[in-house]
Design a protein around this nucleic acid. Structure first.
Lengths: 106, 106
DNA sequence: TATATTTGCAACCAGTTGGTTTCATTTAAT
DNA sequence: ATTAAATGAAACCAACTGGTTGCAAATATA
């Protein structure tokens, strides 16, 4: 079974979960209250997010707090990066500014 | 049927197609030669990529050249952006440099 | 005109997905 | 000790996925 970050963020509920726990680690029950889906559905999403290491568990008594592991999103960023200069004018300007700075230094 | 960019880039073959036509617009036949999958399979992927506007068609006789529409990837970039500062030291440094530049200007 | 090439589309198929309901386990509270 | 709460896992289901084969339409070539 394929379990990669791209497949994980393909689902809108999982993206919402990511956005939610980015602000604060949270238990499955707390998350479920933010969505229409049941706690068990959230639990299944969390399993997928855990399997591809996008989130990490922290046990606290009978509760489990889920933390976001933002580093994993770098894989997606790395995929997109080569195409950024094809749409982002700002990026090109930045790129110019930085290379200019670099040249001044050396 | 959900047809968004996130779902489109979830498939590794489609990401490969994106990488391929980023360099040069290409016909389905030409693409299929780069992969194990059949021309029809590539065609189905192209349909999905077209439906979410990640690629654009350019008819030329009986051939159809598919171009990448990189702007659409901005949706993914926008999703990731808020989390970048959570992993990317460079980003923070850049951010600092830029705000410094801005302050000097004003 | 007859033939070959390029392409998209429909039908089919096994495997996956996202959801539900039910159940067992662990831990806290009474 | 009993009850309540929090969680994960299994079984089930309809819908979707990614692949295949076969076919039809449009265009180029002989």
């Amino acid at each position: 079974m394929r379990r990669d970050v791209f497949q994980a963020i393909a689902d809108p509920t999982r993206r919402a979960i990511i956005a939610l726990i980015a602000l604060q680690a949270m238990t499955p029950n707390a998350m479920a209250e933010h969505f229409d889906s049941s706690r068990q559905a959230v639990s299944k999403h969390l399993r997928i997010l855990t399997e591809c290491q996008l989130v990490q568990q922290e046990q606290s008594g009978r509760e489990i707090y889920y933390h976001l592991n933002p580093k994993k999103l770098k894989e997606v960023a790395d995929f997109i990066e080569p195409y950024r200069k094809m749409w982002d004018k700002k990026f090109n300007q930045l790129d110019h500014v930085l290379s200019t700075l670099k040249n001044k230094k050396s």
